[in-house]
């Protein structure tokens, strides 16, 4: 009897604990999903429905007018194009330059290694605000404000250190014996790097490429400092400019915000593993 009662109450306790856990999981999910849901829902409401009371949790008359407006009446297509150009060029340059440097650090011993690594680490922590005034003055003297190459150069400089840091980890994981064997087979050191080490580090290169792409896609402060014409502004600078103006139209803004998240959510869905690896190995190890 006693035993059965104990088992019963134990079972009850377990049920309560399970229910509590489930409730907590639901609450966490809601806190994360509701802001996104609310933005997406708002983007499909007409301007009058956006402000109507009582609040519509689902749009009564869903419409795509906000998206049509964003694509036809605003500079958003330009902004998206600019962002894509900045992302793609930066990723290519960063991968090329950083993988070469990381290979050097991973495979050779020399006196420059320690100061170089110091610079690589420190530039990841340095406040970007230290750069904007001197670069603004220097760029305006060289008439490089509102120039694509100039802003891409800054983006590269900021992403190269973290990329080097991540890639050193990946290259160290590839046995040296492999590139030494390639050297014996007649490859020079660049060929050993290019033909043997790089292909083996493919997953590392993908992880770095994704983290650089996401960082550039969301970058704001440099974008608003070094571009002030619509033809060169990336998406985040465009969104930020609309938000800090008065008379915000929330329906349209929600549409722009939804579009800004879309590529990142898609990448996250497809390559979650790479993304997580890029984030953890960059920070924790060290």
């Amino acid at each position: 009897m006693n035993r059965i009662a104990a088992a019963k109450s134990g079972g009850k306790g377990r049920h309560v604990a399970y229910a509590l856990k489930l409730a907590l999981c639901a609450a966490i999910t809601l806190i994360i999903v509701v802001p996104l849901y609310w933005m997406i829902v708002t983007s499909f409401k007409s301007e009058s429905d956006v402000y109507s009371m009582p609040i519509q949790f689902l749009p009564k008359a869903p419409t795509t007018e906000n998206y049509e407006y964003a694509f036809t009446q605003t500079r958003m297509p330009w902004y998206i194009l600019n962002s894509m150009v900045y992302v793609i060029v930066t990723v290519i340059v960063v991968i090329a330059v950083a993988s070469l440097a990381a290979y050097s650090i991973s495979r050779y011993r020399h006196r420059g290694k320690k100061p170089f690594l110091f610079a690589v680490l420190f530039s990841q922590y340095m406040p970007i605000t230290t750069l904007i005034v001197p670069l603004y003055i220097a760029f305006s003297a060289l008439s490089l404000l509102n120039s694509r190459p100039a802003i891409i150069a800054i983006y590269c400089a900021l992403q190269i250190p973290i990329a080097i840091w991540l890639l050193i980890g990946y290259f160290n994981g590839i046995p040296r014996a492999l590139d030494e064997a390639a050297t014996i087979d007649g490859c020079n050191s660049f060929q050993a790097f290019y033909k043997v080490v790089l292909p083996l580090a493919r997953s590392g290169l993908i992880a770095v490429g994704i983290s650089v792409a996401i960082a550039i896609w969301q970058e704001l402060i440099l974008a608003i400092t070094f571009t002030n014409v619509d033809e060169l502004r990336p998406l985040m600078a465009g969104v930020s400019a609309t938000m800090t103006k008065s008379g915000i139209k929330w329906g349209q803004l929600a549409a722009t915000g939804t579009i800004s998240c879309l590529p990142i959510i898609v990448i996250y869905g497809l390559c979650q593993r790479y993304l997580v690896r890029g984030m953890t190995s960059g920070a924790v190890k060290g």
Binding site: A96, V97, A98, L100, A101, Y103, S104, I105, R107, Y108, R109, H110, G112, F116, A119, V120, S123, M126, T130, L131, P134, L135, A138, A153, I154, C156, A157, L158, I160, P161, I164, F193
Partner: peptide, 19 residues
């Protein structure tokens, strides 16, 4: 080894060190 570090060093020196 030094040559491989050169491109990264130049970009970082110009866009981070100099500022």
């Amino acid at each position: 080894a030094v040559r491989y570090l050169a491109p990264a060093t130049v970009i970082m020196a110009a866009m981070l060190g100099f500022p």
